[in-house]
Amino acid sequence: MDHDGGEVVTPGELLGNSSLLAGLGAYADGRCVRASITGHRRLVPPPPGSTDQRSTVEVVGHKAHGAVPQPGSVVIARVTKVMARMASADIMCVDSKAVKEKFTGMIRQQDVRATEIDKVDMFQSYRPGDIVRALVLSLGDARAYYLSTAQNELGVVSAQSITGGTLVPISWTEMQCELTGQIEQRKVAKVE
């Protein structure tokens, strides 16, 4: 990243007037754009083809914040509890970045798969300890993010059988134990 280009600014410092757009680390205050964090000032030209021809000014700070799940991001989560109508999971990664603190997610019965959503059996789809790839639907309620696995690429990516062996996917609903050959039901993700 190009850090050395811009001068160092501190919160509250004037970056420009309304001929610029406020990006990350900056904010618009009436007619002027000011910095909100300490860091290097950087100008980003408008993306080609956009109607707004104004450049964006942003401030690149030196503190890296942990990744936070946003609606639309793909997360990797570990299932912690499976109930009749939902399963809860702890989010571990957001878009290939590990999270610093604990975020809980919830997969509701209607979000497990795209078809026949009323016939979903949660216990035939997930087990505690499964690693799932899921899409963040929304910020959810006060306790958990709402997650969805209603796509071919989403679902269980890694799991262990009852005996403790690794499960190998054999179809989009079944996985087989390496050790015993026993077949278990899961909502399997299609991993490329």
Binding site: Y27, S36, G61
Partner: peptide, 11 residues
């Protein structure tokens, strides 16, 4: 707060 990189209106 400035060290933590928390966005502020001004100092």
């Amino acid at each position: 707060l400035a060290d933590a990189g928390i966005p502020m209106r001004d100092i």
